[in-house]
Measured scan of single mutants.
Amino acid sequence: MAAGGDHGSPDSYRSPLASRYASPEMCFVFSDRYKFRTWRQLWLWLAEAEQTLGLPITDEQIQEMKSNLENIDFKMAAEEEKRLRHDVMAHVHTFGHCCPKAAGIIHLGATSCYVGDNTDLIILRNALDLLLPKLARVISRLADFAKERASLPTLGFTHFQPAQLTTVGKRCCLWIQDLCMDLQNLKRVRDDLRFRGVKGTTGTQASFLQLFEGDDHKVEQLDKMVTEKAGFKRAFIITGQTYTRKVDIEVLSVLASLGASVHKICTDIRLLANLKEMEEPFEKQQIGSSAMPYKRNPMRSERCCSLARHLMTLVMDPLQTASVQWFERTLDDSANRRICLAEAFLTADTILNTLQNISEGLVVYPKVIERRIRQELPFMATENIIMAMVKAGGSRQDCHEKIRVLSQQAASVVKQEGGDNDLIERIQVDAYFSPIHSQLDHLLDPSSFTGRASQQVQRFLEEEVYPLLKPYESVMKVKAELCL
């Protein structure tokens, strides 16, 4: 049975990233139509530049190519590739079939990587351009969430054990800070992308030097003109047959890092959902379990974690691919890159769409948070109580021993009897502590235990987050809708 299948058929496997999760716009960027249309555009740009620099290419040939950029006979191309065992030459023939007058000058002087690699770089750039505003929107939604809850005390956790208090907004800023680093890295790697350009079979530009009869300047002009037509500021000066596969490492490393950030955020949300302090959106008709109707599973956060793990592992592909590119190139890269580049971007696209949807509907339960604080705060307040007693004339050592005994009794009630923490009640009825009984409410005010959390939130948002989001103001209103 021949390899390949009808990918629109229910009898043929289709990647869930495309069929179930990723956005239509990201799927289109990695589609065959987008790819092969870009090949034709690159052939047109090459012909236009070659004509401008004096090669015998007519206006009629150029116009014929322009008129057929979208006229792609995919069936013919597939048949040609089956016959020739070469995808680029299959599309040269297919393009030439609908451009008979231009057929002889299509791909003039070029090698397969002229269309293959340059198209990949265009796709990487455009895919990054799709991700950047999506990530900015996630940051914006979380920034709104953090600002609104900047002063809401909550129990902090280290080692997932109760620690000092923080605020809900401050905790959210930990998430935002990681995503801001990801946004900066995505922008950097996007701006650092260079075009492969017009380089020939081993990167020496020998074929173009021959076409222009040894004119170095025209060869350099050709490279520059096509690079500018493709919208790049610069091209690699040095290439082998391909652009260095280190570029793929750079791009997928940034995406993998984004995956790590999203995994951490969504894990926190899942843990908070278990504590009943916070939940992701839950639709009115949504079913959490087929057997347990009360369940409210954090399905979206779980999906993000599941896909983020996949995204983090994909960076190993370009690392290994770059390491086995012998001399000017081997074909070890080809099949692998067809999979890992598309999957990385479709996965990143999915987790950003999902995280935006989550961040637009996060639900906080202040009463649950308050109750958990009441359970733990008495123990945390013991040092403040000791200091207040010393100020009232008591002995630190005597007070410490009193607190120690009462704390152990209260802990026994919590752990052995399943009761509430009654340390404060014990202190309130103990005559030894009568000098500070009137101060206990103040000493137990949760806001006095959150330090500068709310001020940190305000400063972080104003100095770091809002300036970073400013270039994306025009796209901030787009909502994230999930079908599944």
Rank of each mutant, 00 (worst) to 15 (best):
G4F: 15
G5Y: 14
S12L: 11
Y13W: 15
S15E: 11
P24L: 12
E25M: 11
C27T: 15
F30L: 15
S31P: 00
D32T: 14
Y34P: 00
K35D: 02
R37L: 15
W43K: 00
L44P: 00
W45F: 15
L46Y: 03
E48K: 05
E50Q: 07
L55H: 09
I57Q: 02
T58H: 14
Q63K: 11
S67R: 14
L69A: 09
E70F: 15
N71C: 11
I72V: 10
K75R: 12
K75D: 14
E80D: 14
E81P: 04
R85I: 10
D87Q: 04
H97P: 03
C99R: 04
P100V: 11
A103P: 07
L108E: 01
A110C: 08
S112V: 00
C113S: 13
D129K: 14
L135I: 13
S140R: 14
F145Q: 07
R149S: 10
S151H: 10
T154C: 09
L155M: 05
L155Q: 03
G156E: 02
G156T: 02
G156I: 04
F157Q: 01
H159D: 00
T167L: 01
K170Y: 02
C172T: 14
C172W: 05
C172I: 08
C173P: 00
C173G: 09
D178Y: 07
L186V: 13
V189F: 07
V189S: 12
R190M: 13
D191H: 09
R196I: 06
R196M: 15
G203R: 00
L211Q: 11
D216S: 10
E220Q: 12
Q221T: 11
V226N: 00
T227V: 08
T227H: 13
K229I: 02
K233D: 09
R234I: 10
I238A: 10
I238D: 01
G240L: 01
Q241H: 00
S253I: 12
S253G: 13
A256L: 02
L271F: 06
A273Y: 01
K276W: 04
E277H: 05
E277V: 04
M278P: 02
E279T: 07
P281S: 14
G288E: 03
G288L: 02
Y294E: 00
Y294M: 03
Y294F: 07
P298K: 00
H310S: 09
L311P: 01
L311H: 05
L314D: 05
V315C: 12
P318L: 03
V324S: 11
Q325D: 05
Q325E: 03
Q325S: 15
R329M: 01
S334T: 14
A335L: 03
A335H: 02
A335G: 14
R337H: 04
L346A: 12
A348P: 03
T350Q: 12
L352W: 03
T354I: 15
L355V: 12
N357G: 12
N357F: 08
I358N: 12
V363A: 04
I373M: 10
R374I: 02
F379H: 08
A381K: 06
A381D: 08
I385M: 08
M389E: 06
R396M: 03
R396F: 05
K402A: 09
A410G: 07
K415T: 08
Q416F: 14
Q416C: 11
L423F: 15
I424M: 15
I424G: 13
E425T: 13
I427R: 04
D430F: 04
Y432F: 15
F433Y: 09
S434A: 12
I436N: 05
I436W: 04
I436D: 04
I436A: 04
H437P: 01
D441T: 09
D445G: 08
S447P: 13
Q455T: 13
Q458F: 12
Y466C: 14
P467T: 13
K470V: 11
K477F: 12
L482R: 06
